[in-house]
């Protein structure tokens, strides 16, 4: 057996073991999700039962039909999508330049600001709702999407800045210097060199913000009135089966429906999360 074949064989077995490992891991991780899936496909209105099975005895798609026909899911989806896209765009628009200067420029107050920003996270924000209301109410932003976008972008701003600054730090400054010598303007430098290199970090940050907005319900139910203005997460919250009312299977079905778009987006953009650096020919 040649050395090459031996190596290939070893890799084959190694990878097979790895596949087994990940399949088991995913299966274990997904148990609660599969539980929800099974509840949502079950014809009996119950979250609990003494003989639970992953494949329900009385199979039905009725709950999904109800989610889409009786509830304003498409409307909520639209609201969520508008909020998510605007928040991601504005957050990135604000965070990229800020992260860039904090990474590249030396100026008075830089270090102090960076450290203070992190420390802000230690504030227990249980009571922040009232203050935020006091802020957006005079602006007339209660019960408007702009109000929510403002809150969401502000909440994610520290994370966006810090996260992208971290990645900018890893791009060697020599790359930019070389380009500058080649006669690139500042603007070209950023758009042609830095941003492509930072693409993975931008996508990672965008995903984080997207998921935050998608799942946020506290601000959404407090500041939005009327079911037609809800986001998906807020709508889901209102569908929540409580002791008094609601149906568990419909709620379970809705939970899964809400999380599906995120997973699809995540799957789709993963390709772009690979660093431009590793693919490019930059050698330290």
């Amino acid at each position: 057996m040649s050395l090459r074949r031996k190596k290939r064989l070893r890799r084959f077995f190694g990878h097979s073991a790895l596949h087994v490992f990940f399949i088991v891991l995913c299966a274990v991780t997904l148990i609660p999700i599969l539980y929800a899936l099974s509840v949502s496909l079950n014809a009996e209105n119950s979250l609990l039962s003494s003989d639970f099975r992953f494949i329900p005895k009385h199979f039905t798609l009725e709950n999904y039909k109800e989610v889409f026909t009786k509830q304003a899911v498409m409307l909520w989806f639209k609201n969520s999508a508008i909020l998510a896209v605007s928040t991601v765009m504005i957050s990135l628009g604000a965070a990229i330049p800020a992260a860039y200067v904090f990474s590249r420029k030396q100026f008075a107050g830089r270090r102090a600001i960076l450290e203070i920003l992190l420390l802000l996270y230690s504030f227990p924000s249980v009571l922040s709702m009232f203050a935020i209301y006091k802020l957006i109410s005079p602006m007339g932003l209660v019960n408007t999407r702009i109000g929510l976008i403002l809150i969401y972008t502000g909440t994610m701003a520290v994370f966006g800045l810090w996260n992208m600054k971290g990645y900018f730090d890893t791009i060697p400054i020599e790359v930019e210097e070389a380009a500058a010598i080649d006669g690139a303007s500042n603007f070209q430098l950023v758009t042609k060199i830095v941003l492509p290199l930072a693409k993975p970090s931008i996508i990672v940050t965008a995903i984080m913000i997207l998921i935050y907005v998608w799942n946020e319900y506290l601000f959404a139910i407090t500041f939005m009135t009327g079911a037609e203005n809800y986001t998906l997460a807020a709508g889901l919250y209102s569908l929540q089966a409580t002791e008094m009312s609601g149906s568990w299977p419909v709620f379970a079905a809705a939970s899964l429906v809400v999380s599906l778009p995120i997973l699809i987006i995540f799957f789709a953009v993963q390709r772009h999360m690979t660093s431009g650096l590793t693919a490019g020919g930059v050698k330290g």
């Binding site: 628009g93 604000a94 602006m139 007339g140 408007t144 702009i146 976008i149």
Partner: peptide, 10 residues
């Protein structure tokens, strides 16, 4: 852009 998006439609 930011300021206008924030205040348009108030």
């Amino acid at each position: 852009c930011l300021v206008t998006t924030l205040f348009v439609g108030c």
